[in-house]
Computed example of a mutant assay.
Amino acid sequence: MQMQDKTTCLDTVSVSTGLKISKKKTELMKINTTNSTPVIIGGEEVKETEAFVYLGSVVDRQGGTDRDVTARIGKARAAFIMLRKVWASRGIRRATKLRIFNSNVKSVLLYGSETWRTTRATQHRLQIFINTCLRRIFKIRWWDRVSNQELWDRAGQKPIREQILKRKWSWIGHTLRKANSSITQQALTWNPQGKRRRGRPKNSWRRDTEEEMRSISTSWQDLRKKAQRRVQWKNIIGGLCPGRGEGPK
Results as ranks from 00 to 15, higher is better:
Ser182Arg: 02
Arg196Lys: 12
Ser14Met: 10
Val53Tyr: 00
Ala88Ser: 11
Asn32Leu: 13
Val86Ala: 02
Trp143Cys: 13
Glu246Thr: 15
Trp169Gln: 05
Lys85Leu: 10
Gly247Gln: 02
Met213Asp: 04
Ala227Gly: 04
Val108Ser: 03
Arg93Leu: 12
Ser170Ala: 15
Glu27Trp: 01
Lys158Met: 14
Thr115His: 02
Gln123Met: 15
Lys166Ile: 06
Met1Val: 11
Gly74Asn: 11
Asp60Thr: 11
Thr218His: 05
Trp233Gln: 02
Trp142Gln: 10
Arg99Glu: 11
Thr49Glu: 02
Pro38Phe: 03
Arg84Lys: 14
Lys225Gly: 09
Gln186Phe: 03
Lys47Pro: 04
Gly247Val: 01
Gly243Ile: 05
Ser36Asn: 15
Ile172Met: 04
Ser22Leu: 09
His174Asp: 08
Met3Asn: 06
Ser181Glu: 14
Met213Gln: 08
Leu110Gln: 01
Ala79Pro: 04
Lys226Trp: 09
Asn180Ile: 05
Pro248Tyr: 14
Lys166Met: 10
Lys30Pro: 04
Ser181Gly: 05
Asn235Trp: 06
Arg207Pro: 02
Asn104Leu: 11
Val146Asp: 01
Gln123Tyr: 15
Val69Lys: 00
Asp208Val: 12
Leu240Pro: 06
Gly64Cys: 11
Gln228His: 07
Ile81Gly: 06
Thr70Ile: 12
Gly245Leu: 04
Ile130Glu: 10
Arg230Gly: 06
Lys30Thr: 09
Lys30Leu: 12
Asn235Ala: 14
Lys234His: 10
Thr33His: 03
Ser103Ala: 15
